Amino acid sequence: MKKIFLIAFTTLLLSSALTVPITKSSCEFSMFNTGWNGCSEFAKILHESGGVIPVMYPYNTVGGFDGTLVVVGPDVGFSSHEADAVRKFVENGGTLFIADDFGSANSLLTKMGVDATFYNKPLKDIFYTKSMDFPVVVKFSSELRGFDRVVLDVPSAITTGGEGFSSSMSVIGEVEDIVNKSGNYVVFAEIKYGSGRIILFSDPSALMNDLYPENKEFMIALASYLGNKFYFDEVHHSDFNPYSMSTTYVYKELDRRSAGWVLFVLVVVGFVSLLGNVKFRISRRTRQRELPAWVDDELFGRMIREMRSGSKYGDENEHENSGKDKE
C-alpha cells in the first residue's frame, strides 16, 4: 500500500510540473510580455473568449487560419506571399484585425488592395486624460457595446469611414492646427472584404497592459466583436526572437518527454512490485496446500516447531501441556 501511495504521489508531482508555463518575452506588444508594454492581459481575454494561438513564422508557411488574425503594433514589413495568404483567408470568410499607428500595417493593406491606411502623424484631441497624448474616445457604433470610453496613447487615425471617432475638436498633426483643421477622425473601422472583414484600430498602445485598468471593458467587448478563435501575430515584431522562443519550446518538450519516461518506469516498477507480492502470497498458500493427503498436518506442524526450537517438545508451553496430558 505504501508503494502504491508513493507512486501516486510522484505521478501527481510530475503532472503538476508539466503544466507550469514558463514562456515570457520583453518584446513590445507581445502576448508573452507581462510588463507594462506587453499585451498579455489582452491575450488572456482572447483566450477566455475562445482560444489564442501565437503566430511566430510568416503567414504563408504556417498553413491556413480559421478564425481571426490579430495583428498588434507591427513594425516588420509584410511580404507579397504573406499578403496573398491573408487575402485568401479573409476572402473566404476570415477576420483580419489590425491595431497600428505608425508601424508597417500600411504595407499589408496596400498589397491587399484595401482603400484605407493609417495616418503617419499622431491624433490630438482636447478631450484627454493625463495629457493630450492620451485622448479619450467615446463615439462608437452601437455594435460595440459594454464600455463607456477608450483611453488612447499617442494614436493615429484611419483614412476611411468607420465605427469609432474622435471628438470634433481633434486634429492630425500639431495642436496649433486645431483651429483650422479640427474634426472627427476615424479611430476604428470595419471594411468588408470578400466573404470576410478587415477591422482597423488606430492605437495598439490602447491594448497594452499599461492601459488595461482603463480599457478592460473595451478589450472584452472587442474580443466578443472579433470572434471566438484568435491567431496572435508575433512574427512582425522586430524585437521578437523566434530562436529563443523555439529553444524554450523544445526544452519544455524534452522535459516532458523525460518526465514521461520516468513516469512510465515508475508505473512499471510499481506494477511489477504489486504483482510480485500477489504471486508470493499465492505461492505460500499453494505450498501449504501441496502436502500429500496422507500427511498428518498436526504432526507435520509439530515437527517443524521442534526443528525451529531445538526441542523435542517444540516450546515450553507445549512441553507443559504435554506433561499435563500424560498425568
Rank of each mutant, 00 (worst) to 15 (best):
S16Y: 07
V136R: 07
K111A: 11
W36D: 11
F97T: 03
L18R: 07
R87D: 13
V71F: 08
A206F: 02
E253H: 11
G146Y: 02
K3N: 12
G301F: 12
K139H: 08
S182P: 00
A105I: 04
L14P: 00
G227F: 08
D100S: 13
L96K: 05
A189F: 01
L144R: 12
V250K: 05
W261K: 13
T10C: 14
N106Y: 08
N106V: 10
S107N: 08
K111Y: 02
D148T: 14
D84T: 15
S258L: 11
I22R: 15
R145A: 14
L13R: 03
T19K: 11
S182W: 01
V171M: 06
V265S: 11
R87L: 03
T247S: 12
P155V: 09
V70S: 01
V267K: 08
L254C: 07
K139C: 03
N92V: 02
L6P: 00
K324M: 12
M169N: 13
C39T: 15
T286A: 12
V76W: 05
S26H: 10
G164H: 04
N180Q: 10
V55F: 04
R197M: 01
G173Q: 09
I45K: 04
V150D: 02
Y193G: 00
S195G: 01
M208R: 13
L152C: 07
R197G: 00
S25L: 05
E91P: 00
D239Q: 13
S273T: 08
G196P: 04
E214K: 15
D148W: 00
Y212L: 03
F188Q: 09
G38K: 06
K279N: 09
E28Q: 09
N317P: 00
I53M: 06
V55I: 15
G194A: 05
G64N: 14
T129D: 11
T286W: 15
E327F: 11
S26V: 07
L226V: 04
R302F: 10
H319V: 07
L13F: 12
T23R: 08
K2F: 12
S25I: 05
Y212D: 01
Y231H: 07
N92D: 12
F65V: 09
K312G: 06
V187E: 02
P135A: 12
M31E: 05
I126Y: 11
K312T: 11
R289H: 11
T34I: 06
F32Y: 13
A116E: 02
R281N: 15
V154H: 08
V262C: 14
D148P: 04
S142I: 02
F118C: 07
A116D: 01
D66G: 13
V272G: 02
G161F: 06
K324N: 10
Y185T: 03
R256P: 00
M307R: 10
W261Q: 07
G270V: 08
W36E: 14
K252Q: 10
K44P: 00
Y59V: 13
N241A: 03
N277G: 14
L207P: 01
D115C: 02
A83C: 06
G276Q: 14
L46W: 01
L6I: 09
P135H: 13
I282M: 15
H47G: 12
P155T: 13
D297L: 15
F42A: 02
T68G: 02
Y243S: 05
G301W: 09
S311E: 12
M219L: 09
G73C: 09
